[in-house]
């Protein structure tokens, strides 16, 4: 039995509509950004637009700052709220496999899907923005997206942590910790802000993967 494949089938049934909607939304925002930039070039001339991007830290697509993290949070809600409704997580944990492997597979499915969506979005945006802006601006755009993508992935893990937590008191604590850690990724939207903070982003990401296991153990112990 391929555990990951078998569990992914379940997760896919829950999330497939959401994945399609998110894919369309990300594509729509990318196209919107393209239209917005071409319009700005026509109105303000290319040199001024380029200047904004290169020297003033203007974002190629500031909407992505909201859409990417929100998609991560929504993905976790769609995946884990049904698991906690009527405590269905018991059914999943009762499957004949180690509980750590079961939870890891569910989380890795979510991270994998989101990563694929974000990766496709970055490639698509690089291609269409590359048609109207120089590669330097495209590179800056990718750097600017990096903390937002990290926030999307980490937001997914932290929301899963909040959903799986059985006690409301602890859930509120989890929310506060999550907001605190995610806010680190929104200090500034300037493209180079996080170039020396790769380790920090990795730490936030790893925390978002590890924390849900703590609440899973609490769920297993029947804490209410």
């Amino acid at each position: 039995m391929n555990l990951f494949k078998a569990l992914s089938y379940k997760e896919w049934m829950k999330t497939r509509k959401f994945i399609l909607v998110t894919f369309v939304l990300l594509a729509a925002v990318a196209v919107y950004s393209y239209i917005d930039i071409t319009y700005a070039i026509r109105m303000e001339e290319a040199v001024n637009v380029w200047y904004g991007f290169i020297f003033q830290g203007v974002s190629v697509s500031s909407l992505m700052m909201y859409l990417i993290p929100l998609s991560g949070i929504s993905m976790a809600i769609i995946q884990f709220v049904p698991e906690m409704t009527n405590k269905r997580l018991k059914l999943t944990l009762h499957l004949p496999a180690g509980e750590t492997r079961l939870v890891s597979a569910m989380l890795l499915y979510g991270y994998g899907v989101l990563f694929a969506l974000y990766f496709a979005c970055v490639i698509f945006m690089s291609v269409i923005i590359g048609m109207i802006l120089p590669s330097e601006v495209v590179g800056m755009m990718v750097l600017q997206f990096l903390p937002w993508i990290t926030a999307g992935l980490a937001g997914y893990g932290f929301t899963a942590w909040i959903c799986v937590e059985p006690s409301w008191k602890q859930r509120i604590f989890n929310m506060l910790i999550s907001v605190g850690l995610l806010s680190v990724l929104f200090v500034s939207i300037y493209p180079e802000t996080y170039s020396d903070f790769g380790w920090g982003m990795l730490l936030v990401l790893v925390s978002s993967f590890v924390f849900p296991f703590y609440s899973c153990v609490r769920f297993k112990q029947g804490i209410q």
Binding site: M1, A6, M13, K14, P82, N86, K87, R88, L91, P96
Partner: peptide, 26 residues
């Protein structure tokens, strides 16, 4: 294990839930 209230994964249909569980049990 049958949980109280016959709890199951309600997002599946009749065929899909059988397919899902069949992968786990030899």
């Amino acid at each position: 294990l049958l949980l109280e209230g016959h709890v199951q994964h309600t997002y599946f249909n009749v065929q899909q839930i059988e397919k899902f569980y069949s992968a786990f049990f030899p």
